[in-house]
């Protein structure tokens, strides 16, 4: 993966000298980050290291106090997470933000439902189109969920994560951000999420993953960015570090 960066491929996302202050606290201090196509970057760090704040600037939740963000070479400013989504930056939160009373197809299209005219009178939600398109995107991700018309409530944790990822990908995500994707899952389900991240990678969609789980990080990441007290203290290929190196960087004893 490092070669890719060196051959001069354009990064999908470039964050340059981002800073965010909350009162006197500098949550993120002059951090730069490049994300290349098909790359999985893990963001590691202790609680309060500034991982979430950094991600929230990239996903449009916070406005940076200083610095610039470039998406495929063009500078972008985002007033809201919705704007970030419309630019192709999809964030999958830890709680997945799914409506558990609704089925997978509706959740994939929530807020952007396709409609067709019925008898020329009113616009009706096109459920068949939603089902067909949901099947397409799930096929693309190599996910098989029996009966997509079941409410999310009846699905397993892994299936829910798959639906959330499918929703992000369907809308042609140029970058997927995942916040603690395996936190609530059992071991077999964690593996499935790892497989999904590999699938995204094969399709050249870059992924930023925030995780406390070192196993997660080593299972999927090409590169690990370590943060401590608002600073970026490490940016290393995953193959070149050990658990201990990582922990040392996180707590600052290296």
């Amino acid at each position: 993966m490092m070669e890719k960066q060196n051959t001069g491929t354009q990064p999908v996302l470039q964050a340059v000298n981002l800073t965010k202050r909350f009162g006197g606290l500098v949550a993120v201090n002059n951090v730069s980050l490049d994300i290349y196509p098909g790359e999985v970057v893990a963001l590691a760090g202790d609680n309060g290291a500034g991982k979430s704040t950094l991600i929230k600037m990239i996903s449009g939740v916070y406005r940076p106090d200083a610095g610039h963000i470039y998406l495929e070479g063009r500078e972008i400013t985002m007033a809201s997470p919705l704007e970030a989504r419309s630019l192709g930056i999809e964030t999958i939160y830890q709680d997945l933000a799914l409506c558990e009373n609704l089925d997978a197809t509706v959740n994939i299209f929530l807020g952007r439902e396709p409609t067709k005219r019925l008898l020329g009178l009113f616009k009706q939600v096109d459920r068949n189109l939603m089902l067909a398109e949901s099947n397409k995107v799930l096929d693309r991700l190599d996910i098989h969920i029996p009966n997509l018309r079941r409410p999310i409530r009846q699905m397993s944790g892994g299936q829910r994560q798959a639906v959330a990822i499918a929703r992000a990908v369907y809308w042609n995500a140029r970058l997927v951000i995942m916040d603690e994707p395996t936190a609530a899952l059992g071991v077999p389900e964690q593996r499935k999420v790892h497989e999904l991240i590999h699938t995204l990678k094969r399709q050249n969609v870059p992924v930023i993953i925030i995780s406390h789980n070192l196993q997660d990080i080593f299972a999927v990441a090409d590169r690990i960015v370590v943060m401590r007290r608002g600073h970026k203290v490490g940016d290393v290929p995953a193959g070149e570090v050990t658990d201990d190196d990582l922990v040392a960087m996180m707590v600052g004893s290296a």
Partner: peptide, 24 residues
């Protein structure tokens, strides 16, 4: 049962936060 408005009513009742984040 058939319009966006109806679907959004269910979505808001199911998970208001998710409905907001989805842009409803």
């Amino acid at each position: 049962s058939r319009t966006k408005f109806g679907l959004h009513t269910y979505a808001i009742g199911g998970n208001k936060e998710a409905a907001m984040r989805a842009g409803i």
